[in-house]
Nucleic acid binder design. Structure first.
Length: 117
DNA sequence: TTTTTGACGATTC
DNA sequence: AGAATCGCCAAAA
């Protein structure tokens, strides 16, 4: 049996990311760094992005469109099936997107730490 | 196996 | 204010 390398262990990390994203409430958004921080991997918010990049072929599907960068910008829109899909999905949830940016970002931001209550 | 590339973010120019 | 640079670390090439 092949011994497994370990550092952060992407498998677990990815799964944890997916689990959190599944908990983002309808009509709310969170950020890569908020998730990374919640997973005690603050230094590498980038990995959260990497994980979500793979989210297109995991099951069950996750609402990856509810994750934006720290500026409220839809930095991942180009990875969706169409460049406009992400904004469309968010709009459908009642979120205003202007110039690839989430309006009222502070207000609809959802922090994973609220799960701890 | 080694190098390059990112759905990031903080810092520096 | 906006662009370039740097640290991060697994995925892709």
């Amino acid at each position: 049996m092949k011994k497994k390398q370990f550092s952060i262990r992407s498998e677990d990390f990815f799964e944890q990311v997916y689990n959190i994203v599944r908990k983002i409430p309808f009509g709310r958004v969170t950020t890569y760094s908020a998730i990374a921080t919640y997973l005690a991997a603050k230094q590498s918010a980038r990995l959260v992005g990497t994980a979500l990049h793979h989210s297109s072929y995991i099951f069950p599907p996750i609402p990856a469109h509810r994750v934006v960068n720290s500026h409220g910008v839809l930095s991942g829109k180009l990875s969706f099936t169409t460049p406009t899909l992400m904004a469309e999905l968010l709009t459908k949830e009642g979120i205003n997107i202007i110039n690839d940016k989430v309006m009222n970002f502070q207000k609809i931001f959802w922090n994973p730490e609220s799960l701890d209550n």
